[in-house]
C-alpha cells in the first residue's frame, strides 16, 4: 500500500450511520459472541428482522471462522476475516470476506448457484438433504449455513471473487434482509 492512505477518509467512511458493524482481523468465538450481542442490542426495536440479521450473521461468520485461509500467526493462529453489516433505508446487508484457495472457487460458486436457483420449498428440501447426510469433507456443515442464510433472508446469495497473486483469492459473500 502507498503512503497516501487517508485515515480521516477511512474513519469518516466507517463512521457513517449506515454501517452497523465493520471488522477486519483475527476472528475468535469470543469476538463473535460480542458482535452477536451488539447486533441484537442495536436491532432490538425490530425483533423479527433483528433476529434474522443475527442468525444470518452467525452462520456466515462461523463459515469465515472455519474456512478462511488467512491466518494470524501471532498468538493462537486465529483465522482472519472481514465482517460488515450495512443498514440502508430498505434493508440490512451482511457481508463477509475471506481468503480462499483459488482451487476451491469452482465448488464455492457452484454451491451458491445451486442455492440461488431454488425457490423456497426446494431450498427447504435441499437443506433437509444436506442435514440428513453425513458432513462433507472439510466441512462443519458447510453448504447448510449458506442454504440457511438464503432461507432466512429470502434473498439470493451475492458472490464476488477477486483473484490474487499466487494460490489465493478473496471471496466476498453478501446477503440482504428486507426491513
Amino acid at each position: 500500500m502507498s503512503d497516501t492512505f487517508n485515515f480521516f477518509e477511512y474513519y469518516t467512511h466507517i463512521s457513517q450511520e449506515d454501517i452497523l458493524l465493520s471488522y477486519k482481523g483475527p476472528l475468535t468465538d469470543v469476538l463473535l459472541s460480542e458482535f452477536s450481542r451488539d447486533i441484537r442490542a442495536k436491532l432490538q426495536e425490530d425483533r423479527r428482522t433483528g433476529k434474522k440479521v443475527f442468525a444470518i450473521f452467525m452462520e456466515m461468520a462461523q463459515n469465515v471462522l472455519y474456512y478462511s485461509k488467512e491466518i494470524n500467526h501471532f498468538g493462537n493462529n486465529d483465522k482472519v476475516g472481514t465482517l460488515v453489516i450495512l443498514n440502508t433505508e430498505t434493508h440490512y446487508k451482511i457481508v463477509t470476506g475471506n481468503l480462499v484457495f483459488k482451487s476451491s472457487i469452482p465448488l464455492l460458486i457452484e454451491k451458491c448457484e445451486i442455492v440461488n436457483s431454488l425457490d423456497r420449498d426446494a431450498l427447504r428440501e435441499y437443506k433437509r438433504k444436506l442435514r440428513s447426510a453425513p458432513s462433507e469433507h472439510e466441512s462443519k456443515g458447510a453448504g447448510i449455513g449458506l442454504v440457511q442464510a438464503a432461507l432466512t433472508s429470502d434473498n439470493p446469495l451475492e458472490v464476488k471473487i477477486k483473484e490474487l497473486q499466487g494460490d489465493y483469492a478473496f471471496f466476498v459473500l453478501g446477503v440482504s434482509v428486507e426491513k
Binding site: F54, E59, Q62, R131, G141, I144, G145
Partner: peptide
C-alpha cells in the same frame, strides 16, 4: 428460540 445449523443436525 434460536439454534444454529450445527445444532439443527443434532436435534435431528
Amino acid at each position: 428460540t434460536y439454534f444454529n445449523t450445527s445444532s439443527s443436525r443434532s436435534i435431528l
